[in-house]
């Protein structure tokens, strides 16, 4: 009986969180996914659906106390789901004309893109794949395993993305004199 009450109580709070996330952040998730998929409306809807499933799956590790972070997390998950869809579409040999120009994952990291020396510019110029993994680690404080679960990746891939993002930024920070 106690187990039943505990189950129901826990269920209620998680249900409320999911309802809150959907009602509050669906528009921004839909916007972010649409931007990654170059305004492909149906693809963006599907990506948001994938993102909601991922959020439901990992609801136990989501910290809802900081709304800004929660919003950022939803954006990251939605964007990654959109990029996943984009990758799968590319794998099915879609003509180049259909590949969006603003899909940042396709944008290689170059030193030229951080001319100006600002750390924020350096972060902005990171490929989204690396940047999102790093944000989940450094801003949300997730461990590599949790980052992998949230992004739907193998743990090793998540570790690699974080490591590469960190290494790319370290080089920039060295050049700018922020770090030895």
């Amino acid at each position: 009986m106690i187990a039943f009450f505990t189950l129901t109580a826990g269920d209620r709070s998680d249900k409320e969180l999911i309802e809150y996330i959907y009602r509050q952040y669906y528009p921004i998730m839909r916007y972010v996914a649409g931007r990654a998929l170059c305004r492909d409306s149906q693809g963006a809807e599907d990506a948001v659906h994938d993102a909601m499933l991922k959020i439901i799956k990992n609801v136990g590790i989501i910290d809802a106390s900081d709304k800004k972070k929660l919003k950022n997390l939803c954006c990251i998950v939605a964007r990654n789901c959109a990029l996943d869809r984009l990758r799968k579409r590319d794998e099915r040999s879609v003509p180049l004309s259909e590949v969006p120009e603003d899909a940042s994952s396709a944008e290689p990291f170059t030193e030229q893109s951080v001319v100006g020396g600002d750390i924020l510019d350096a972060i902005k110029s990171l490929p989204e794949l690396y940047r999102d993994a790093c944000v989940l680690k450094y801003v949300h404080g997730y461990k590599e395993k949790e980052v992998a679960e949230l992004l739907g990746l193998p743990e090793r891939t998540a570790s690699t993305r974080i490591h590469r993002g960190k290494m790319l930024l370290r080089e920039v920070l060295r050049k700018e004199g922020y770090h030895e």
Partner: peptide
């Protein structure tokens, strides 16, 4: 040095998230 870099990145990514918003 690695730990110092982590602290620096925490701050930088924190700022980035705010600016992205």
């Amino acid at each position: 040095k690695d730990e110092e870099l982590d602290i620096l990145l925490e701050k930088a990514f924190g700022e980035y998230v705010l600016s992205e918003d």
